[in-house]
Simulated scan of single mutants.
Amino acid sequence: MIIPATVLTVLAVLLPIVSALCAGGVLRRNHLVGIRFPALQASDAAWTAGHRAAILPSTVLAVLAVVLLVLSYAVPALALWGSILTMLVAIAGFAWGILAALRAARAA
Rank of each mutant, 00 (worst) to 15 (best):
M1L: 06
M1E: 08
M1Q: 01
M1N: 07
I2V: 15
I2Q: 13
I3S: 09
P4E: 13
P4A: 02
A5D: 13
T6R: 14
V7S: 15
T9Y: 04
V10S: 01
L11A: 15
A12D: 02
A12W: 07
L14V: 15
L14E: 12
L15C: 13
L15Q: 15
L15W: 13
L15T: 14
P16K: 02
P16F: 00
P16C: 01
I17Y: 10
I17F: 14
V18H: 12
S19V: 09
A20R: 13
A20Y: 14
L21T: 10
C22M: 00
A23K: 11
G24L: 02
G25F: 01
G25C: 06
R28E: 08
R29G: 02
R29E: 00
N30Q: 02
N30H: 09
N30Y: 05
H31P: 03
H31F: 12
H31W: 07
L32K: 14
L32D: 03
L32M: 12
V33C: 01
V33S: 10
G34P: 07
I35V: 10
F37N: 07
P38C: 00
P38K: 04
P38S: 01
A39L: 06
L40V: 14
Q41I: 12
Q41Y: 13
Q41K: 12
A46C: 07
W47G: 04
T48G: 11
G50K: 08
G50L: 05
G50Y: 11
R52N: 12
A53D: 08
A54V: 01
I55Y: 08
I55E: 04
I55P: 05
L56W: 03
L56Q: 08
P57I: 08
T59W: 04
T59K: 04
V60G: 06
V60E: 07
V60S: 00
V63H: 02
L64R: 06
L64F: 13
V66Q: 07
V67P: 04
S72H: 08
Y73M: 09
Y73W: 12
Y73E: 07
A74P: 07
V75N: 09
V75Y: 10
V75F: 06
P76C: 11
A79G: 07
A79P: 03
A79K: 15
L80R: 15
W81I: 15
W81C: 06
W81Y: 14
S83K: 12
I84E: 04
I84L: 11
L85F: 05
L85Y: 10
T86M: 02
V89T: 10
V89E: 04
A90S: 14
A90Y: 05
G93A: 00
G93W: 02
F94H: 03
W96A: 13
G97I: 06
L99D: 06
L99H: 10
A100W: 01
A101Y: 04
R103L: 01
A104H: 01
A104N: 07
R106W: 00
A107L: 03
A107H: 11
A108N: 11
